[in-house]
Design a protein around this nucleic acid. Structure first.
Lengths: 135, 135
DNA sequence: TCTATAGTTAGCTTGATGGCTAACCAATTA
DNA sequence: TAATTGGTTAGCCATCAAGCTAACTATAGA
């Protein structure tokens, strides 16, 4: 669990750099050697290798050396893990919106009821409209 | 576009810190003052404020001061933007898996056809099975 | 076997990040 | 009006991140 959290740290930190995001995007399209990956960047190779290394540490990328060429591929589990984090937050957020809306509805109802009781007998219990989007 | 990219940088960098993720999670459940937010952490207040500031710069959090208390709330657009990035990558990744599978199927077909032509007339065009999962 | 290629290691510089304390407003509240 | 509360500013320090060059290893190809 704590380990998983620090994994999230590493994944987000890895993705905070545009070079590394570009590498991930490239690898989504298929595996590639370090040289192929590095080619579009102006950076010196050792600098570039650091990025690859960060991606490996984060679990986003795996690599394997065969002969003198190191081939990198995406290992999407870490990516999915991070995506899950967002979905979880969104679920909580949306549940809260729902609760908030329910609360507003309850207030409306109570106010209507108060009006009713003061005005004595008049039935206007208008149904609340359904969710109006994500805001 | 470039601006949006650097926004992604900032959002991911903001989320790379467990304190800041905790703040975001807390704010998913509803707005809170700086003091309320800081309460669970052992950190000195100025240090904590830095985290809040980073979150504000990233666009994940908005805040407003009324009297002497500053109230923070989530501004979920940035969160959604980051989530979109994942979904986009996943779409590319999955399309690639599909293409890869199609390629394998084509190979199989060609091999079968080759066998057929060498064996002359024997019809065994076995239909390929459907997707077998994500890996 | 020599040479070019692909990557790696070591070590340096610069700037950002994450923490702290101390001192300082500015609203509330007694 | 004096004291408390909630937050802010300023400035320090240690560590990490991202880049570089130079020198090195190991494989592939001529």
């Amino acid at each position: 669990m704590a380990n998983q959290l620090s994994q999230l740290d590493q994944v987000f930190a890895a993705l905070a750099d545009p070079t590394r995001r570009a590498i991930v995007m490239r690898l989504c399209a298929g595996e590639a050697s370090v040289g192929e990956l590095a080619e579009p960047f102006e950076m010196a190779l050792p600098s570039f290798m650091k990025h690859v290394h960060v991606l490996e540490l984060s679990g986003l990328v795996q690599s394997e050396k065969s002969g003198r060429v190191r081939t990198c591929r995406l290992s999407p589990e870490a990516l999915v893990g991070a995506e899950d984090w967002f979905q979880h937050q969104r679920a909580i957020w949306e549940a809260r919106l729902d609760r908030f809306e329910a609360y507003v509805m309850k207030l409306k109802k109570e106010r209507a009821a108060a009006k009713q009781s003061s005005k004595a007998t008049e039935k206007t219990t208008n149904k609340p409209s359904k969710r109006k989007g994500t805001e």
